[in-house]
Design a protein around this nucleic acid. Structure first.
Length: 349
DNA sequence: AGTCGGATAGGTAATAAAAG
DNA sequence: CTTTTATTACCTATCCGACT
C-alpha cells in the first residue's frame, strides 16, 4: 500500500523527466530562460500530480517566511475591520498574515509575540495599545522590524515607521462642524481606558474649542465615571435650552449610547443636542437619527503600512517590476497621518 | 547564446551512533 | 542503561557549471 503524501518538486521532476531545479524555475522563476516545451511538460506534470508548493520548505530555503504578524488589542470595531483589510492587503503582496489579539493583557501579549517570532515573521504590525515597550525593544533588538499604527507614545521611535489615523484632526473638525451647525456649548464623551487614543481626542476637542472662539462652555465626561442612565441628565444640566449643545463621542458606539439616552430622556436630537461619533461604523449609518461620523480609509491605511514595511524589507524592486507604483517612504522613524473624512448625518444637522 | 541540471544550503527534530 | 554527539530527513531555491 503506497503511503499517501503530497507531491513534491521531486515527484514533479520525475514525472516531467526534468530536474528539480527546472521544476522550481518553471513554477516560480519565469525570468530564467526556459523552452516552451519544458514549461508545458512541468506544468502538466504538476497538474497531474496535484502538486502544491511547500511554503515551509521554501521559507527554510530562502531564509524568509513571507509571513507577517498583526498584533491588536482586540477584534471589535475598528480593530477587526482593519485586520480584515490587512489580510487582503497581505495577500495582495504575496504575504501570509497571522493576526493575534492581546486583550490588553501583557502576559498574553508576550506569549503571542513569542509565537509570532517562533514562526520567524518577516515583520510585525502592532497597534499602539497592543504592545509594551519592553516587548517592542526586545523584538527590534532581535532584528524583526516593527511598524506601529495608531501609536502616539515614545514607542514609535523603535519602529521603522508609524501610520496613524488623524483622529486629532477629526476631533478638531468635529467641534468646528458642531459649531457651524449652531452649537454653542460642547461636550466630549470619552473613554479613558483607551489611553493615548483618548488623549488624541481630548487634544483635538480642545483645539476645536480654541478655533471656534474659546469662549463657549465646554466639559468632558468619561464612560468610566458616569452611568449611561445618568448621561442625559448630566448633559442637560450643563447646557442651555436656547442653543443646541454638541456632543463629540469617543466612537460611534458611545455616540449611539449617548444619542439613545438623550432621546429616551425626551431631548430632541438634533434639535436640542447634536451628536458626532468616529469610525463610521454600521451603527452610525443605520440608527435613527443617523449618526454623523468620520470615515476610516482602511484600505489606504493598510496599503500605506504594508508598502512601508515592504520597502524596509527590500522588496520594493520586486513590486515595481510587477507594475506597482513606486513608493517613497516617509522619513525613517517618521509618522504618517491618515485623514478621516466627515460623514454628515441627521444627528448633527 | 540559450537551456537545463548537479550540488548544496538552510534550521530543526528524529534517529543513529558513540561515549559514559 | 543513560547521556552526549553525530547523522539524516524534510523540501525548495539558487548558484554555477555543462551541454547543445
Amino acid at each position: 500500500m503506497a503511503e499517501y503524501r503530497q507531491a513534491t518538486v521531486f515527484d514533479v521532476a520525475k514525472e516531467a523527466g526534468v530536474s528539480t531545479a527546472t521544476v522550481s524555475n518553471v513554477l516560480n522563476r519565469r525570468d530564467v530562460p526556459l523552452s516552451e516545451k519544458t514549461i508545458r511538460k512541468v506544468e502538466e506534470a504538476a497538474a497531474k500530480l496535484g502538486y502544491r508548493r511547500n511554503v515551509m520548505a521554501a521559507s527554510l530555503s530562502r531564509r524568509k517566511t513571507y509571513e507577517v504578524g498583526l498584533l491588536l488589542p482586540g477584534f471589535v470595531g475598528y480593530y477587526g475591520l482593519f485586520a480584515q483589510q490587512m489580510e487582503r492587503t497581505a495577500h495582495k503582496y504575496g504575504y501570509h498574515l497571522s493576526v493575534f489579539s492581546t486583550d490588553m493583557d501583557s502576559k498574553v501579549e508576550r506569549r503571542l509575540l513569542e509565537k509570532l517570532l517562533e514562526r520567524r515573521v518577516d515583520g510585525l504590525f502592532c497597534h499602539g495599545l497592543a504592545m509594551s515597550g519592553d516587548s517592542a525593544r526586545k523584538v527590534v533588538n532581535d532584528g524583526t522590524p516593527i511598524l506601529f499604527f495608531n501609536c502616539w507614545n515614545e514607542l514609535k521611535h523603535l519602529a521603522i515607521g508609524t501610520v496613524n489615523l488623524n483622529v486629532y484632526q477629526a476631533c478638531v473638525d468635529a467641534v468646528v462642524h458642531l459649531h457651524e451647525q449652531g452649537c454653542r456649548s460642547f461636550f466630549y464623551y470619552g473613554n479613558k481606558r483607551a489611553f493615548a487614543t483618548n488623549e488624541q481626542r481630548i487634544h483635538g476637542f480642545r483645539e476645536g474649542l480654541r478655533l471656534t472662539g474659546g469662549k463657549h462652555p465646554a466639559d468632558m465626561i468619561d464612560v468610566e465615571d458616569i452611568a449611561a442612565d445618568d448621561l442625559a441628565e448630566w448633559l442637560a444640566e450643563r447646557s442651555e435650552d436656547a442653543t443646541p449643545a454638541g456632543v463629540m463621542c469617543f466612537d460611534d458606539w458611545k455616540a449611539f449610547v449617548c444619542q439613545n439616552r438623550l432621546i429616551e430622556g425626551g431631548y430632541d436630537v438634533p434639535g436640542r443636542f447634536k451628536v458626532v461619533g468616529i469610525n463610521n461604523e454600521f451603527v452610525a449609518g443605520h440608527s435613527y437619527p443617523g449618526i454623523t461620523s468620520f470615515n476610516v480609509p482602511y484600505e489606504h491605511q493598510a496599503d500605506m503600512s504594508f508598502r512601508w514595511m515592504l520597502t524596509h524589507l527590500g522588496e520594493q524592486a520586486k513590486l515595481e517590476a510587477k507594475g506597482e507604483r513606486p513608493f517613497s517612504p516617509p522619513v525613517a522613524g517618521g509618522e504618517v497621518k491618515i485623514p478621516l473624512t466627515l460623514v454628515e448625518r441627521l444627528s448633527s444637522r
